[in-house]
Amino acid sequence: MTWSNLFAAIVGAVVGTIVGILPGLGSSATVAILIPVAFSMPADSGMIMMIAVYFGAMYGASTTAILLNIPGAPSTVIATADGYPLAQQGRAGPAISITAIGSFFGSMVAILGLMFLITPLSKFALKFGPIEYTAVMIFALVMAATLMGGSLFKGFLSIGLGLTFGLVGIDLQSGVSRFTFGSGHLTSGIDMIVIIIGVFGLGEVLYFLVEQKKNVNSGKE
């Protein structure tokens, strides 16, 4: 609770929030870019600033999801379901405030949990092997199939596309390149941020252009 650490937290939160509003950059890339800055600071201040940047970026990414229906991170896709309809009703302020309050309490719970549970969680994580990871993935697919809603075809199509995109790149276990077709750009896989911005962002832009054209045509009539 020193002034230097508090200042580092404030600067990190502000920078992270600004970066989170810019779709495509993301929290992980921002943290990686600021690593040289953190090395020039004391260890505790640098770590606090990096954590604040990550939290701020995760919150800032929900702003574009609420206002523009363009999530800035995969974790803020769910904000488009409730936040954007509220923004269309003129209640963008309450939606952003609710997100800020939820992010604050979620961050506090995460920090406290990390402080008191880091030792048992690290021991539990080291016991995870291929069998456990496979079980978790199967459970995730079963949950996705359960929550896919009314259209089974669309749900299975989404799961299939997700699995297909996830197979592209270098296998982390064997180091074998999969579905890269000799392209070096695909060795690191397909960035989900790009896909999400393309699906939500371009769709929203095209919808706005179509609605604007309809309004212009109706005005001429």
Rank of each mutant, 00 (worst) to 15 (best):
F156N: 09
D171C: 05
V168N: 07
V168L: 04
A110M: 11
S151L: 06
L86Q: 15
G56W: 01
M50L: 15
G166M: 08
M143I: 15
F139C: 13
R91N: 07
D82L: 01
G149W: 02
M148E: 07
S103R: 03
F55R: 09
M143D: 10
M108Y: 01
V77G: 08
I111V: 12
A125Y: 09
I51W: 12
L86H: 12
S158M: 05
A110V: 01
L147T: 14
I70F: 00
S97L: 14
I131P: 07
T63N: 14
I118D: 14
G60L: 04
G160H: 06
A145Q: 10
D82K: 01
L68T: 07
M108A: 09
T99N: 12
G113L: 05
M137Y: 11
V109N: 02
T64K: 09
G129V: 00
G166V: 06
L157W: 04
I170H: 01
A92V: 00
G106R: 03
Y84C: 02
L86F: 06
Q89T: 07
M50R: 06
I70Y: 00
M148Q: 13
A135G: 13
L141T: 10
A52S: 12
I66A: 02
K154F: 07
I138M: 14
L86P: 13
L117T: 05
A87W: 00
L157H: 06
I170W: 00
V53K: 02
G93V: 09
S97C: 08
T146A: 14
P71A: 00
G93E: 11
T134G: 13
I101Y: 01
S122V: 08
R91K: 13
Q89L: 05
A73R: 03
G166P: 08
V77A: 09
F156G: 08
